[in-house]
Nucleic acid binder design. Structure first.
Lengths: 116, 116
DNA sequence: TCAACGATTCGATAAATGTTGAAATATGGA
DNA sequence: TCCATATTTCAACATTTATCGAATCGTTGA
């Protein structure tokens, strides 16, 4: 994982609404949530949230798919795991006593996902 | 760990020079590195680095102590561990299959440190 | 085809962030 | 005391980021 990518991911999470949105998506699982549902849950204008979701998407932390009129966003668990791994990579000066960051997999329907 | 604190920490790490500085400090261990040594290693103007170190310090990610003319900065491992814990807290919708983030302790002179 | 709905894109604007050089503060040694 | 070293603070500036409302783009169903 290259540093620029890590910085984008950290920057994407370092904002009140985006961190909250990401947490909701992580909890929502692979099915995800519609942009509108997120906007309402967070109390943010749709156009504002769209901007934030684009940031998260650009950082590779969320993915989107259309379903009817809605666009469903879902957390990208492998990306999250990769970010944690990078942060702990230097931990203990390379000696992996800390162990790698725990893999982050969705609780349900985990059978359809490969966390490489 | 409250969300505002988490955001400060993430924001502190979401910058090229600060992320690099923090990594160097994590690798340097509890003894830390002088501000000047960091500035030279990163190729950043001293006043610029001072600004960045203040951000990291305000986020609670590093601590400082004076030694002679130098000010030595060192990574705050418990803070790092707390940050990772927060990020994984929501993982798997609360079911801790992911396990908590691995504790991050310095490799050497670990006898003088309490990672609660 | 048309109207309603869900979401994004586009401008404009306000706020926060990063950089630099000069000046100020603190320490150590002659 | 005086000077050199190490670092921070300050002010100015350019850049990036966040917000909102209006306009636009897809999709659905009558």
């Amino acid at each position: 994982m290259d540093p620029q990518h890590v910085i984008r991911a950290l920057g994407a999470l370092a904002q009140e609404h985006r961190l909250a949105a990401f947490r909701l998506l992580v909890q929502a699982g692979p099915q995800g949530l519609a942009a509108g549902a997120l906007a309402e849950a967070l109390g943010v204008a749709p156009s504002s949230l769209s901007f934030h979701l684009a940031q998260l998407s650009h950082a590779g932390l969320v993915s989107q798919r259309r379903e009817g009129r809605s666009i469903l966003y879902s957390a990208d668990y492998p990306a999250m795991t990769g970010l944690l791994a990078y942060l702990t990579e230097n931990c203990c000066a390379g000696q992996d006593q800390c162990g790698p960051a725990a893999a982050c997999a969705p609780a349900s329907t985990s059978e359809e996902r490969n966390v490489a």
